[in-house]
Amino acid sequence: MDNLESIAVRVEDGLDESLRTDNVWPLLRQIEQALQSLQESGSETVIDLGAMPFSAQDEQDLRERLGRGEVNATVEAFGPTLVQETAFAGVWLVEYLDAEQRRLTLHLQIARIPDLLITPADDLADSLASLRRANRDFSAAPTEDVQ
């Protein structure tokens, strides 16, 4: 071999029609049922796509099927988390990434709003306390600048 460039390198995990696992269709049916129970009884469902054989091709197929909805949010906590509403209201894709943008896991959440977007009750107390502290600091601060 003359040089390293002559070694063909290709990314194995890329999209490949032949890498479908046949898991998309059963998953869509599962989403349908979950959406029905959300509508009827308000019960929410989370499906962990990281825990089943699910290829990149499968994921692309699924994303194509579900489409994109109105809401698109990023939560910056312990690395970014991408929250994407699909074209079907109530069906969300939640992608957890770590600080180096590597995926921790991918959830499908069937809910009116994903848990992660709701302000945690614990944080309300902290937040009120810190806002009060901030307001106190603000009111106590010298006012030369204003003058």
Binding site: D48, V75, A77, F78, T81, D98, T105, H107, D115, P120
Partner: peptide
């Protein structure tokens, strides 16, 4: 400095 959301995310990742 990990927030509550961060903790919950940590828990989701741990579960996975």
């Amino acid at each position: 400095g990990v927030s509550r959301r961060g903790f919950m995310k940590f828990c989701a990742a741990t579960a996975s």
